Computed example of a mutant assay.
Amino acid sequence: MNRLRGFRLRAGMTQAELARAIGTTQSHVSEYESGARRIETMPAGEFVRLKAVLDVTDALLLDADLSGIDPDAVAAAENRVARLRRRLRRRRDRASFDLLVEAELDLARRMDEREEVVARAMGSRA
């Protein structure tokens, strides 16, 4: 699956919705996803909006070597945080709060590790 398409689907957006959000056309988004257009050639303003809308880094969008990242571990940590947030809204007890804090810290650690791998990968591309 194309990296951009995966990020778009993760965000729950259609090509048309993403296009509106970044200020381009659906056909351009389709061309970026298919490889007919390279993301590296995207106008800077659109690229900045794309990163913000999809909540991703340059390296992730530009397909850096991210072999040191376990995307399933990050996704699992994000899902655990979401579940525990819902639990805390229902229960509002100390145990739920403590579990949520622990899960948030785990997610932050995993995201820091991911950013370190991305930074190393981007350094090797320069």
Rank of each mutant, 00 (worst) to 15 (best):
N2M: 08
R3D: 12
R3M: 14
L4F: 06
L4G: 07
R5L: 10
R5G: 08
L9Q: 14
R10P: 00
R10Q: 13
A11K: 07
Q15W: 02
Q15D: 04
A16E: 15
A16L: 09
L18I: 05
L18K: 04
R20E: 02
A21I: 03
I22E: 00
G23C: 09
T24I: 01
E31Y: 10
E33R: 00
R38N: 14
I39A: 03
I39R: 03
I39P: 00
I39Q: 02
T41F: 00
M42E: 03
P43M: 12
E46P: 04
R49V: 07
L50Y: 05
A52F: 06
A52H: 08
A52D: 13
V53S: 02
V53R: 02
L54R: 01
V56M: 07
T57V: 08
T57A: 12
D58P: 08
L61S: 02
D65W: 06
L66F: 03
S67H: 10
S67D: 13
G68F: 06
D70Q: 10
A73E: 14
V74D: 08
A76W: 01
A76H: 03
A77S: 11
A77M: 06
N79W: 14
V81R: 05
V81W: 01
A82L: 13
R86I: 11
R87N: 07
R89W: 08
R90F: 07
R90A: 12
R90E: 04
F97Q: 12
D98H: 04
D98F: 00
V101Q: 12
V101F: 05
E102I: 09
A103P: 03
A103D: 01
E104G: 03
L105P: 00
L105F: 05
D106E: 12
A108L: 12
R109T: 15
R110T: 07
D112F: 15
E113S: 04
E113G: 09
E113V: 07
R114N: 07
R114L: 09
E116P: 02
E116N: 06
V118N: 03
V118K: 08
A121R: 03
G123Q: 14
S124Y: 07
A126I: 15
